[in-house]
Design a protein around this nucleic acid. Sequence first.
DNA 1: CGATATATTGACAATAATGTCAATATAGCC
DNA 2: GGCTATATTGACATTATTGTCAATATATCG
Lengths: 227, 227
Amino acid sequence: MSRVAKKTATASEASAKAAEKPTQKRVRRTADEARRLILDAAEKRLARQGPEGLRLQDIARDVGISHPAILHHFESREGLVRALIARTNKQLRDSLLGALGDGDTSRDAADHIGHVFEALSDKGTARLLSWLLLTGRATEESDAHNIMGEIVDVLQDRREEYAEKKGTAAPDKEDTLFIAMLTANAAFGEAIVGRQLAEAAGLDQHGIKRFRKWFAKLINDHLEAKR
Amino acid sequence: MSRVAKKTATASEASAKAAEKPTQKRVRRTADEARRLILDAAEKRLARQGPEGLRLQDIARDVGISHPAILHHFESREGLVRALIARTNKQLRDSLLGALGDGDTSRDAADHIGHVFEALSDKGTARLLSWLLLTGRATEESDAHNIMGEIVDVLQDRREEYAEKKGTAAPDKEDTLFIAMLTANAAFGEAIVGRQLAEAAGLDQHGIKRFRKWFAKLINDHLEAKR
DNA sequence: CGATATATTGACAATAATGTCAATATAGCC
DNA sequence: GGCTATATTGACATTATTGTCAATATATCG
């Protein structure tokens, strides 16, 4: 009841002289641009504040628009979430496969692993995907499946090429899969609990880098031993 | 407006004869028992449905009480969350340190690692803690810090004992820390994305076990190489 | 320039969740 | 058996958030 009275203030504000139509200005973006800005803002909120930071009004404020505009572009909050998931999956896929499939044979396991960690920690991608998995939204949009499969295939090809060149035995495919799984698990884990654990252990940013290098070497040693 | 009319039904139900006071029965638990039941229900909801499954009314229904009873025992929803975090931290600490500090030297790295994975996947402990970290509730209740520190200390002691007995060089402490971090990260990661990745790779329950064994062997090999 | 499509908005509706409170039932104690 | 403390509850208040809608401004196209 008290809320109704408040809005009369805007009316008085508009009637500075006797203007019936204040003719307020608006910024009008293309639909794609608007969608991009909204997704960017949502991504940032999610990375910073977690799942509960995804409120339409907050995102709208960040972008500088009103919240119905978001509904207009994404139909519903769920639509926004789905779009965000789809975009993040796509970005992750491009980032990972792009680095792997570069054809640059000079890159070794350490490079690949470093890239995986960066791709997942960058912009809180792992946080977003984790939340998606925690809330059980993953069964429907099982894009992640394909990504994993593709990556393992690429890796296996690389190892087979390498083995053939060296004339050694063909690598075990399950071994390749397990390496990929461990790397993915560790990268996700680090994105979520890594900072806490590192802090607890008194590690600074540089210590985390040392950890990643240590891990890369562990994998490299394993690869060497298999040859 | 329409909601008011609905409740008259209960009145008619109560007036089977002319009973002014239906004298409804109640189950009355001790405060501790009630708190325990509520926390159990909240834990299950969280493990199954993620963060969004933590609604007072749902939990109350699971326990078979009304939602104000939860408020009575935990002050607020936040209070419930904090209590749940505290209990989970305690359980995890006991589980991990208990297994590690058992003084049983017959246990090797594989046993320890298996235990860590089980402790975190059991009851969705990792899911709960992940959510806690994702929502940024960890900085205050930094119990996790202590746990990590304690575990690394215990592990380091073990390695030093072992090295002394074998007469080999003392192990690097950072190496021990990194092993613990990797194990923790991997276990967390597996709890969150592991199932998805495993499914994507066509692994069944047994495949996941093989992965864990593979990981344990990887660590064991590393330990051997260090000696 | 005029018409059309649509991006944008303010106000409101609907819903859902937490939290408050007085009333009530029950266990434990004298 | 009566008393006291408190666990429990139904009804209600409060608040926050998503979603709807008609109105409006603006880019684009003829």
